[in-house]
Design a protein around this nucleic acid. Sequence first.
DNA 1: GTACAATCGGAATCAGCATTCCGCTTGAAG
DNA 2: CTTCAAGCGGAATGCTGATTCCGATTGTAC
Lengths: 192, 192
Amino acid sequence: MIRSDAARNRAKVLEAAESVLGEQGPTARMDEIARRAGVGVGTVYRHFATKEALYAAIVSARVDLLLDEAARLRAAAEPATGFFTFFAQVVADAAGKKTLTDALRSAGIDVKAEQEDQRTRMREALAELLRDAQRVGAVRPDVDMPEILALLRGASMAAETGDYSGPVIDRSLAVLFDGLRPLAPPAPPPTA
Amino acid sequence: MIRSDAARNRAKVLEAAESVLGEQGPTARMDEIARRAGVGVGTVYRHFATKEALYAAIVSARVDLLLDEAARLRAAAEPATGFFTFFAQVVADAAGKKTLTDALRSAGIDVKAEQEDQRTRMREALAELLRDAQRVGAVRPDVDMPEILALLRGASMAAETGDYSGPVIDRSLAVLFDGLRPLAPPAPPPTA
DNA sequence: GTACAATCGGAATCAGCATTCCGCTTGAAG
DNA sequence: CTTCAAGCGGAATGCTGATTCCGATTGTAC
């Protein structure tokens, strides 16, 4: 039986960690997280063996949400917009937080298995959305995943700094998206 | 009189610091820099009061080079390409190193006066190149400095991670630049 | 209500690093 | 060739912050 207070504390720790890590990034102190959760450091460590584990738990949850979103967008069957919407969503998720970019790091040395798995799924989800968008001519056919990942990473990192306002991020993405669109208006879909 | 060995050591420290900080970023250890320079830590500290000072010296030198480059490009009077060339140059300079991005941070809290000054000049140089490019219709008129800075920052940060090969960076920049160009072919310059 | 194991809290421990200190060395001036 | 201050190396110090430990609490089962 899981003690009720233990469950409650775990939740409090997660919540506190999400906000503290989001604000201060990986340099946030464990003491601060514990204080914010109204709990002793020892308790934090009972639930998460290490700072890195705590960090991973939070990032993992956020990535899962994004993956859900990707699946939803794909199911919505709007290939022309799904890719762009998802791209913007990832950037928006990163904005002001200081927590996500590492999850997108394509070449990590000491990544845990779970993180590696998420990374792969993220890449796949993005690749599918990209393929769909290219099929209907919403994205120029001569771009490929490597540059998409690099662009997404850069956009996320910049957003993550918290130095740019929402409108500036929007305008930046607009420029980027224009660069991704074909020069000529999209050819009518094959079935039209 | 400046002792010859002191001058020599200073140079060795700078050189070692440039490569070590470039490889490992701000987390590099002073011991490592000293070792790489073939010198004791004490010597490093004799020449640079603090790690931050050493870091600043290096960044400052690199930014100066970039500013020279900007001036040169402007003097070359090729407004249609200067802006893009400079943008790419900044990104190339950041590529693989882990040292420059902070210099572009637009909102620093505890920046030294000199750094603040360089930041300003960097912004101005970029603004001039942008203005020129827009005047001749090489860059769409509806983009402004804030988004340019955000895009440059993102591109530099991504390049800085060292996760992307040169070709990938080139293709990413190509996409970005396409987004910055006007949709219609540039109008002939007023004097044509 | 009582007993007991799971939890707690948070002080003490440990480790990593920047920075300081000081006795030794060495370039340069006379 | 001496002299001696500037410069040197690197051990010792101090601080910051993660992680561990253990006596005190507190759910839960009976």
